[in-house]
């Protein structure tokens, strides 16, 4: 195949598609967490990238310090980082309720600097290795390409968690509380529900999603203090493209943009880092509220 003067082989195309789906898995989990938090707290969590990074470090610590393997990390690290998130909400974000949301944005921005700075201090800028769990090593032969098992697992795990979250929010009683409190928190409180506690837990859950993505990323990208800062701007672009209003929108946009990015790497590699931002500019021109967002 010859496109734009690049000679492209099929295996290369499949390979990039796969990488695109993997990146999309992370975009989806991260933008989903941002959307969940935004829905309840109407704040943009700039510390999201830092929590993602901390999730990966959580896995690393669990292994090095407690000897707990990947499967424990997959549960414990999001739980621990989510708890840190809940504490952050209680200690800091709660005090900013009623002020311009830009202040909470700046607060989370400051927190991101603190977390990232601390980790860079102790671990430098380079990456720490984290091995693929042995149950997920190796590769499947799909006939047209080899699929590393771990990569397939990341895609499946991300889809299951993303769609599971969507199901809980759209189809359960708990989700109904969340949606109702997003619309009118005072009224939900007037029904006897402790909305402030729900807000804290929601923030913790959004953060836990980021940490979960971080654990998934650890064996692929190494564990690096800067890993969150590198991905967060793209995730913001994903959120802007998808629109802040929709949970499903953030999931779908995440996966699709990952794939688009992967394809760009095949057909026009020079633009692969910027294609998401270009799409964002185009979407903003046509639909300022994003693809799935409600116009305000």
């Amino acid at each position: 195949m010859n496109v734009f003067g690049h000679v492209i082989s099929w295996p290369q195309l499949y390979g990039q598609l796969l990488i695109g789906l993997i990146n999309g898995s992370f975009y989806a989990l991260l933008s989903l967490g941002l959307a969940v938090i935004f829905g309840m707290l109407t704040i943009v969590n700039f510390a999201h990238g830092a929590f993602y990074m901390m999730g990966a470090f959580g896995a690393y610590f669990l292994l090095k310090l407690a000897g707990l393997d990947y499967w424990w990390a997959l549960i414990l690290s999001p739980f621990a980082i989510g708890a840190i998130g809940a504490i952050v909400e209680r200690l800091f974000l709660k005090r900013l309720v009623g002020l311009d949301p830009l202040y909470s944005l700046l607060l989370t921005f400051g927190l991101a600097l603190i977390f990232q700075g601390l980790f860079q201090n102790f671990f430098g800028a380079s990456g720490l290795p984290y091995a693929i769990p042995k149950q997920l090593s190796g590769a499947y032969n799909l006939g047209f390409m080899f699929l590393p098992v771990y990569r397939g697992w990341v895609i499946v795990a991300s889809m299951v968690v993303s769609f599971g979250t969507w199901l809980v929010i759209e189809k359960t009683k708990l989700g109904a509380y969340l949606r109702a409190a997003t619309e009118n928190p005072t009224m939900v409180r007037a029904f006897g529900i402790n909305v402030p506690r729900m807000v804290t837990l929601t923030y913790g859950f959004g953060v836990a999603l980021a940490a979960f993505a971080g654990v998934l990323a650890a064996p692929i990208n190494q564990v690096r203090p800067g890993m969150g800062a590198d991905i967060i701007a793209v995730v913001f672009a994903v959120v802007v493209i998808g629109g802040m209003g929709s949970i499903m929108g953030s999931i779908l946009t995440g996966f699709v943009l990952g794939v688009v990015e992967g394809l760009t790497k095949v057909f026009y590699p020079e633009a692969s880092n910027t294609v998401v931002f270009v799409i964002m500019a185009i979407v903003l021109l046509i639909r300022p509220a994003g693809l799935f967002g409600r116009a305000s």
């Binding site: 800091f92 700046l106 607060l107 400051g110 927190l111 991101a112 600097l113 601390l118 860079q120 201090n121």
Partner: peptide, 21 residues
């Protein structure tokens, strides 16, 4: 002090937003 600058900047950020807007 290397990366402590980033940490201190973050702390100043948080402190300003919380008590010194």
């Amino acid at each position: 002090y290397g990366e402590w600058v980033t940490v201190i900047q973050g702390v100043v950020f948080v402190a300003c937003v919380l008590v010194f807007r």
